[in-house]
């Protein structure tokens, strides 16, 4: 019962934050909605008994990505008049919702076709030790590829954001 109410509160915050991103015109409010959604997502990870991913989500998504977004918002420092006008925003949102709803219904039906229930977790499920052992035994190649990707992204960010570069 307690689990259900915690889930209801967390999903309310998650969907509320996402709607704030979708509907708000101010980019600072967009970033705060994103922060709320990421923290609620970390709570859902904890509810699924993944203690390490809970910490990783808070550190990477809520800590690094949202703070980087807020720094970008304050750096570009757009005045309210320079934000996009979007006069027909609600109409566009309704039209795209009509287009997207069959796709999301299909996704939901496909996901719920799995005929299993949550079991009792085995000892050590979701801890750093088990995830680390799995990562460095059967997931070594994706891990190494990911390090190359991070290096490429770092170089790309430096090259794009240089002052003298022309677009």
């Amino acid at each position: 019962m307690l689990e259900n109410s915690i889930f209801a509160i967390l999903s309310l915050f998650l969907i509320g934050g996402a709607l704030m991103v979708l509907l708000s015109r101010e980019i600072v409010l967009n970033a705060f909605g994103f922060l709320i959604a990421m923290l609620a997502m970390a709570g859902l990870f904890a509810l699924l008994e993944n203690s390490f991913l809970f910490l990783a989500q808070i550190m990477i998504s809520a800590g690094a990505v949202v703070v980087l977004s807020l720094i970008a918002v304050t750096t570009i420092n757009l005045k309210r008049d320079n934000l996009p006008e979007e006069p027909n925003k609600i109409r566009w949102i309704v039209i795209s919702a009509l287009i997207v709803s069959p796709i999301s219904l299909l996704i939901y039906k496909t996901l719920t076709m799995v005929n299993r229930k949550f079991q009792e977790t085995v000892d050590g499920y979701g801890t750093l030790k088990v995830i680390g052992g799995e990562l460095f035994s059967s997931w070594v190649l994706p891990f190494e590829i990911l390090s190359v990707l991070l290096l490429a992204a770092m170089l790309a960010a430096i090259v794009i954001a240089r002052k003298e570069s022309e677009i």
């Binding site: 999903s11 998650l14 969907i15 996402a18 709607l19 991103v21 979708l22 015109r25 980019i27 967009n30 970033a31 909605g33 994103f34 959604a37 859902l44 977004s69 970008a72 918002v73 934000l83 996009p84 979007e86 925003k89 566009w92 949102i93 039209i95 795209s96 919702a97 287009i99 997207v100 709803s101 796709i103 999301s104 996704i107 939901y108 996901l111």
Partner: peptide, 25 residues
Amino acid sequence: VATLLFSIGLIGVMSRRNLFAVYIS
């Protein structure tokens, strides 16, 4: 919840013109 979140993100990418909102979606 995951499906709803994915749909909201897809709607945001399709309907917003603000680049920052598109990125967050």
